[in-house]
């Protein structure tokens, strides 16, 4: 059915072209009520928010987002996922590109001034990922002379260099995936970021990597909402409900269960 594939590719090109031509427009296809919820997630974070090759979405954030949206009364086909890269999360909430964001979004005071947060629904911490057979890296203080990978513009690597191991050698890439490639090939020794993000990569190749398991910071992942959102209390209730009815644990186990990283206790929702 080669012809079909080519036809599909040409069709996609034509569709994209026509979309560009009419400058956005409304969502093609049918949405009967017109009542959709647009949720910002990561598209490139395996195990958390990930767009699969077939166009479907997977990950802990995705499952939590679906649970919350359904709790708010949306059907699964009324959920539209939008890619929210770190730099444009606040902008997307302010200008209405998305209705809420679950994208490894840490609750901080600076961000609270611009957007509202429900949750936290997860407490992550900075940790280190190494090859499974590595024994000499046991924590942030054991990285002197080691080659540590991190993602451009992220502070975790600087944190290690300034506060723990002054002699660490830093390599910056634009994706974690490249760090993983380099650690797998033995060119680099370790990478650092939030433990749950590391777990997502460890899950992809079970047995090849391990997480050192000595988190040395605390990141409260929250649900980002536009300032003054009326749904905040409802979402906080839904997050607490997910801790109790097992949905939270299931979302974790489905997506990160084989990473070798243990599920921590659920956090306490902060109704500020």
């Amino acid at each position: 059915m080669k012809f079909k594939k080519i036809a599909a590719a040409v069709g996609a090109l034509a569709l994209a072209g026509s979309l560009a031509a009419c400058g956005g427009g409304d969502d093609t296809g049918s949405d009967a009520g017109g009542d959709k919820i647009k949720i910002g997630i990561k598209f490139d974070q395996p195990g958390l928010g990930f767009k699969e090759a077939d166009g479907s979405y997977s990950g802990f954030d995705v499952d939590m987002a679906t649970y919350i949206a359904e709790g708010l009364g949306y059907e699964e086909d009324q959920i539209e996922f939008v890619e929210a890269v770190s730099a444009n999360r606040e902008t997307f909430l302010k200008d209405g590109t998305v209705d809420m964001i679950l994208a490894t979004y840490s609750i901080t005071d600076e961000r609270k001034a611009e957007v509202d947060f429900a949750g936290p629904y997860y407490v992550a911490g900075q940790d280190i990922l190494v090859a499974a057979d590595n024994t000499d890296i046991t924590g942030p203080k054991t990285l002197d002379g080691k080659k540590l990978c991190s993602v451009t513009g992220s502070t975790p690597a600087e944190n290690i260099k300034e506060n723990y191991s002054k002699g660490v050698q830093l390599q910056e890439f634009d994706t974690y995936s490249k760090c993983i490639t380099a650690i797998e090939g033995g060119q680099l020794d370790a990478m650092t970021t939030d433990d749950i993000i590391l777990a997502g990569y460890a899950q992809q190749d079970p047995g090849k990597f391990k997480i050192v398991g000595a988190p040395f910071s605390e990141e409260n992942y929250g649900v980002g909402l536009p300032k003054g959102s009326e749904d905040r209390d409802k979402i906080n209730d839904l997050i607490e409900q997910s801790f109790e009815d097992g949905a939270w644990e299931k979302a974790f186990n489905d997506n990160l269960g084989e990473s070798g990283y243990e599920l921590p206790e659920p956090p306490t929702v902060d109704r500020y």
Binding site: I6, A9, L13, A16, G17, A20, A53, G55
Partner: peptide, 22 residues
């Protein structure tokens, strides 16, 4: 083999090509 799948072109290469060409 992903490069033989139409999905790969639809979801990755063609959007990239559109980005480059636009």
């Amino acid at each position: 083999t992903p490069f033989l799948e139409s999905q790969t072109w639809e979801n990755f290469l063609i959007p990239g090509l559109i980005g480059t060409l636009s």
